[in-house]
Structures are given as structure tokens and as C-alpha cells.
Design a protein around this nucleic acid. Structure first.
Lengths: 331, 331
DNA sequence: TTGTACGCGTTATCAA
DNA sequence: TTGATAACGCGTACAA
């Protein structure tokens, strides 16, 4: 059976020194000088006991937890998001912070922000939807020094990382027009959680196309074959489609193939996300994607500024992630 | 600028009661009886101040953090894993625990297990690879009451949730044989992190096929078209392939199509994971998947048993996730 | 160079 | 029914 975890006092006793000395040795504070021999004794005692400092106690004493909270729900899954997350973890731990992912749904009747605040994190990163005015107030009053939203458009209350969906749409539309398309359609998914992104991408496509005198028809589409098939008349009336997504692009291409519409002969299709799978399609799929490689360092840099400055809560926006065109040309 | 977060003492002063009364009211402990009038005063004072209890202080005092740690790296991304994670979060918070995902890579030279131990979680769930004998010792001695590994095979040191990859392979092979295949191949991906799962799936396929007198050829494959194309002779020499994955299945089908091999006429292909995308393939893809719907409740149930029992550290195994055959028959 | 003493916010015990 | 007080483990100013 397990005894209670060893404390720094246990270490001190075993090493024959005081608790303070143990703390000095283990945190290696520059100001204090301890003899090498004592250091060694303390270190060995700590090792032998398997001593691990108590994060809660440290937080209580120092007033800083070093925790950066990120909500679990608000990031899309997929290789891209996971890569960005790992980058964030690396950047933060390099600077002595600890990234922690935390659920946003509390069942005990406690709102998410309150549950987060209990941990006294130094910073919180979450979807814009979770960061209402009052949620942020709760966090602020719990001592959180930096709050950053991630979303499709700038938050009104905190600095935000904005995903440049409009840029994606514009790039896709531009590509189609460059290839000679003169009547475009853009898919907007009907699934909750995707629709808003779809609308931002559509808006970007619209703007880019209008600037060049090309009309864009909006196509609201559930992720089902019959839904896509029902819009056959639309697909036949245009010569270029931005399919929102590689998934939707593949859905579309399957349906078009069944209907005898030639891709890219009769209709060009552009997807988004550059899924590895999409590269295997026949015919090949042209795809656009958000370049998130810079995101982790941008976010961390902004977080650090905010933590320095305290609460200059000006809801500015962080440079959006840029869209990259990956030409896997249908050939 | 922000003042320091309000404490229970602040609430007590504002309500004109003692700190202890505040604690009694807010935690609603059954043993104590406080007048309704006092309760109301305390509640209102807490609300007005935006009081949020300090998790660290509570942990320090009570000795229990209520935190369940899960390593961020060890779960495959994708809709399946995310669904399971959400289920876990729900189950745990229903019982008063808090699920927290935590990075496993520490750069300050601190091993992961030690960083975890600092938080004094009540339970840890991590990939079997991260839970070495000594890592578990560190956790145990820091008071962690339950440690569960997730992996492809049972851990030698802690109870484990075993993903039934062999069952997947067996199911796939059985399906192919039922459809009349007599010479099988099974793909083993060469990517690190996938290879081991591939080998377990292969082993299951082998065993099931041997029992019915059917040979299985192993095909080590990187996720690249030229790699798959280089094995054309193999694909031509068999009549059924278990492709490890829907992704690999699609890779294979693209290559086979280019080479003029008819699917399923000349060669049947079975994938795994039941990706939505796979349903759109032409010809349609037969796929197998792990049914993870029961996983969250199984894991939580086991965790609770372990936390009751303390350290009956017998490395037993939790019922594996079962494989489900999703017949999207190539028709 | 090292030890003493106090405080961080919370909860439990005991006394009123 | 409520209040005073101690204790949890750690970090650090100050004294020795």
C-alpha cells in the first residue's frame, strides 16, 4: 500500500538540512549559494524518495500556475489541427509554460469559464463562441492574464486568431477564373459547425469573383450523395465549383461521375485542406489549404505580450493564417 | 488593472460571516446546517465579487485534485478518437472528475511522468509506450491511484485497454474468404506509429486465414503511389487484400485502377475505419472498424474500481474494443 | 552557507 | 447555527 507522497520536508530530514535548503537546491535560484556537497546530498535524498514537488502548493505560494488552458472542443480534428497543437505545446513548454487541454462542457451546472478559472491558468485559448463578455470577466477576475479567441471572425471582446476563410474562398475562385471558368458555384455545408466557415469561404469567393465580373451561385449541401445529386441542374449550369472541402469535393465528384458530368472537362472542382487522400483521386483534385505553420509561434508571441502588458484588453486581431494554393491540377 | 482574485475571506467579510461559513455554504456539505438567510447573504456576496475557489488550495487542503490526466499524443486523431474522448470527458465529469489532456514531451529535461505527477492527478491514462515501470512508480509515489494504459497489446505493468487489432484483421480476412478469395495479401504500413498496428492486424488476418487453409502474403507499404505500384505483381497474384486502412485502401484502388486491375472483379479490397469518404468511392469499399462506443464507460468503470482498491496493480486487461464489420459491399 | 518563520487559500476539527 | 484555529506543501525574506 502507498504511503503519502514525500514532501520537501521529508527530503530535508533525509538529507539532514532544512526545508529551505531543499527548495533552494531544487529550484536552483541564482541568488543563493549552497555548497556542492549539500546540493549533492539534497539531490540524492530527493531521488531516493521519489520526491516530486506539489504543483498546487507551488501555485498557491507563488501565485502563478504556469498553466495555459485550451478548450478541447474548439479545434477541428485532422492532421493540420494536431500539428498546430503540437507546435503550440512545444513553443509554450520551451518558455516554461504548460499547455493543458480542458473540456468545456461542465455537467455540475458550473459554466465552463468558472471551471477554467478554478485552475488559475495564466492564459486561456478557446473558441470565440465560448468567450462571451461575462466568461472573459470571470477569467480576468480569477487572475488570467491573457485570453485569446480562435474563430472565423474577430471577437468583439478579446484578441483573436482569425482563420482566413475568405482568403481560401478568394484563392479558389481566382484559380477557377484563371482557368477560364465564367459561371461559378460555391458549396456551403449545412452541418452545424461547418456552415459558418462555409459562409466565410463563400463570401471570399463572391468578392473575388465579383471583382472580375463572374457570378457565384451558393449551393447549400448536406454531406450526402442524394443531396448532391438533387442539385444536378446547378452543377450542369456552371463550369466551376468551389466545393468547400476535399470531403465535399469528393462527394461531388462521385455524384458527377455517376451523372456523366466530366471533371474537369465539363466542370472544374476545387477542394480545400489538401487531404492526402485527395491526392489519390482520379481525376486529380485541385485543392487549397490554410497554411498553419506559423500559427503556434504567432499565438504564443501574442500570449506573451498580453501577459506582460496585463490587461490591455484591446480586442485586436492576430495575423490570420494565410491560404496556400496547392495545385494538384486535374490533368 | 486587475486586483488580485477575491478569496473566500473576502466573501466572508462582505457577507459578515466567517470564512468557515462561506466554505460550508458554497460546498453545501450535508453535515452542517446554516440558516437560509445566511446562505443567501453568502451566495450573493460570492456572486458580487465574482468569487471562484482556488483549485490548488483545495487540492492542497483535501489531498485530492479530482484531475484525470490523459496524454495528448497517444490517441489517434480522427472522428472516432474524438468521439471517444468526448465520451470519456462526459463520463468523468458526471462523476465529479475533471479530464485534462496534457502534453507528454517536456523540454526542461523533466520526464513526462514527473511533470504529470506534479499535478497530483487521481488517475492517469496514457499510451503504453509512455508508462514504463519507473514512470508508473513515479506516479504511484505521487499518490496517483489509478493508471491505465492504452495500447495494441496488454501492458506488463498496469491494467490496459487493448485495441483489438487482431480482431479487425480476422474479420477482414474472414470476409474476403467468405466471398471466395483463396489467396490473400495484407498491407502493413511502413510509417512509424502505424506499423505496429498493421502487424497486429496482419497477425489476426493470418490466424483467421490459416484456420481455413488460406495463405496471406504480407505487403509492407509506404503511403505513396509509387510504392503501391511497385507491388503490382503481388496484387496480380492474389484475389483479396486487406488494406490495413481506408486510406491505404483508396491508395491501392487508385493504383489498381491505373494498372487496369478490376475491383472487385479481379481483386477484392477491404479497408478499415469506415471513413465517410470511403463511402463515396467508386467502386464502393468494404470496410471494417473498431466499435469504440463502449470504450469510455469501460475505461471510467475500471478507473473507479482502481481508485477504490488503491493499488491492486495487477496488470489485467480491460475488455478490448470489438471490431464491427461495416459492409459497404463493392457492388 | 544554512535555518527560522511566515503566508498563500481552502477545509476540517473543535469549541462556543 | 456559527466562529476561531490549525494544517496542507512550498517559497522566500530575514536572521544567524
Amino acid at each position: 500500500m502507498n504511503a503519502k507522497p514525500p514532501t520537501s520536508l521529508d527530503v530535508a530530514r533525509l538529507a539532514g538540512v532544512s526545508q529551505a535548503t531543499v527548495s533552494y537546491v531544487l529550484t536552483d535560484r541564482p541568488g543563493t549559494r549552497i555548497s556542492d556537497e549539500t546540493r549533492a546530498r539534497v539531490r540524492e535524498a530527493a531521488d531516493r524518495l521519489g520526491y516530486v514537488p506539489h504543483a498546487g502548493a507551488r501555485t498557491l505560494r507563488t501565485g502563478r500556475s504556469g498553466l495555459v488552458l485550451m478548450s478541447m472542443e474548439d479545434l477541428p480534428y485532422g492532421p493540420l489541427a494536431v500539428g498546430a497543437l503540437e507546435g503550440l505545446d512545444r513553443e509554450l513548454s520551451r518558455r516554461g509554460y504548460t499547455l493543458v487541454q480542458y473540456g468545456a462542457r461542465r455537467l455540475r451546472g458550473v459554466p465552463a469559464a468558472r471551471a477554467w478559472a478554478e485552475l488559475r491558468p495564466v492564459a486561456v485559448v478557446a473558441g470565440a463562441g465560448k468567450l462571451s463578455r461575462q466568461a472573459v470577466d470571470v477569467l480576468r477576475s480569477a487572475g488570467v492574464r491573457a485570453v485569446v479567441a480562435i474563430g472565423n471572425r474577430p471577437s468583439a471582446v478579446v484578441p483573436s486568431v482569425v482563420l482566413d476563410h475568405a482568403g481560401v474562398g478568394a484563392l479558389a475562385a481566382g484559380h477557377l477564373i484563371d482557368r477560364g471558368c465564367r459561371r461559378l458555384a460555391a458549396v456551403v455545408p449545412t452541418e452545424t459547425g461547418l456552415r459558418e466557415m462555409g459562409e466565410h469561404r463563400l463570401a471570399g469567393a463572391l468578392q473575388a469573383a465579383q471583382a472580375r465580373g463572374v457570378p457565384v451561385t451558393r449551393a447549400d449541401l448536406p454531406f450526402r450523395e442524394d443531396g448532391a445529386a438533387a442539385l444536378l441542374d446547378l452543377w450542369r449550369s456552371v463550369d466551376g465549383v468551389f466545393a468547400y472541402n476535399d470531403d465535399y469535393a469528393m462527394l461531388l465528384m462521385a455524384v458527377l461521375r455517376d451523372a456523366g458530368v466530366a471533371v474537369p472537362g465539363d466542370l472544374r472542382v476545387v477542394g480545400c485542406d489538401d487531404l492526402p487522400l485527395a491526392a489519390l483521386l482520379r481525376p486529380r483534385l485541385t485543392t487549397v489549404r490554410l497554411d498553419v505553420s506559423m500559427a503556434p509561434s504567432l499565438i504564443v508571441q501574442r500570449l506573451e505580450e498580453l501577459m506582460e502588458a496585463g490587461d490591455s484588453a484591446a480586442p485586436d486581431r492576430i495575423d490570420p493564417w494565410t491560404a496556400t494554393l496547392v495545385v494538384r491540377e486535374s490533368s
